[in-house]
Design a protein around this nucleic acid. Sequence first.
DNA 1: GAGCCGTGGCG
DNA 2: TCGCCAAGGCT
Length: 390
Amino acid sequence: MNELSNDLPANPLAGTFAERLIAWQAEHGRHDLPWQNTRDAYRIWLSEIMLQQTQVATVIPYYARFLERFPDVAALANAPQDDVMALWSGLGYYSRARNLHRCAQVVLAEHGGRFPADPETLATLPGIGRSTAAAIAAFAYDAHAAILDGNVKRVLARVFGIEGFPGTPKIEREMWALAESLLPGSDLPAYTQGMMDLGATLCARGKPRCGECPFDSDCVAHATGRERILPTSKPKKVQPERYVDVLVICSGEHMLFERRPDSGIWGGLWSLPELTPPTGEREVDDASLRERLTAHAAALGATQGTVQSLVPLQGLTHVFTHFRLHLRPWLVALSGASAQRAFAARSSDSHHAWLDSAGIDAAGLPSPIRKIADALRVVSPGDGQLCLPA
DNA sequence: GAGCCGTGGCG
DNA sequence: TCGCCAAGGCT
């Protein structure tokens, strides 16, 4: 009993799917990739690990170097880990390299140097999950096992019109069941390669070439004009929004900067003194802002009454990977030259710097902070003076 | 079960 | 430039 029958209507295509895919693969599939035309499980395994989340063109040179340096599983198992990591350098996902090395050692020590033939045992080895195990077993040993990688998910979602993000356990279970139900009785290597080839070439993410596809008119997505929206894309997470008020305090030709802590965002860079709303709220209450500003200025060494005016400047949004930061700069005017000098003197410490135009140019500033500073200063050709708007 | 891992290509 | 994703697996 298979979950498929509960979720999908019987698709007349299912009966001939494998047959048509295998025929298409023979005619239009890829047959000359470096890891094809071999039954050597070691070579197949090595390619499958390298190809995890990595495109074919990227893998090819790495694969060649690895085979040259480590021609068999024993050579790899007996190599120092540093050598393995050095050859992997640049491929990314370095846990794959560590697992690769460990896996070679396990195969050598516990399986007599020969990769197991059944997918279940293969999947117990480091770095080999369900899909990779199936691919190795199918290519090397003709095992009756289904793969489910990004290519297969895309093909199945489109051909069978499966809605929902394939990354969720529910849709993934559905797809595993469907993938296994479609397996042919023979020709597993050609079928498995066909799934990958179709997904990587015709049924590509960007512009599927439906006119050349063996499933053309039978494809649910194509028949309903949804090939561009299937598979359902990953739901976008709403990025947290942060609001920070920063102070632009000038004295003569100088602007006050504050050094960021070494850890965290912009660690070690020079930024503007900032006021983070205690609640992180979006709305600014002018009175409370003045209150906090006065407190902040006092902490910096200003005496009460120094702050003469507070002018909101053009805000900007900076996008980080984890959140969106809304910067709200406030131009702070200090009253009187003597107050400014006193403020400058008292706010001078290792965490603060009064920078002139040249100093701003030379300092390490986060780019949005530099934008704020640049917007404020007008560098006249002659003297490089900091000029404030009226 | 969600977060994380790296680099490169593409629209 | 920017977001998304690629022959997934591990914690």
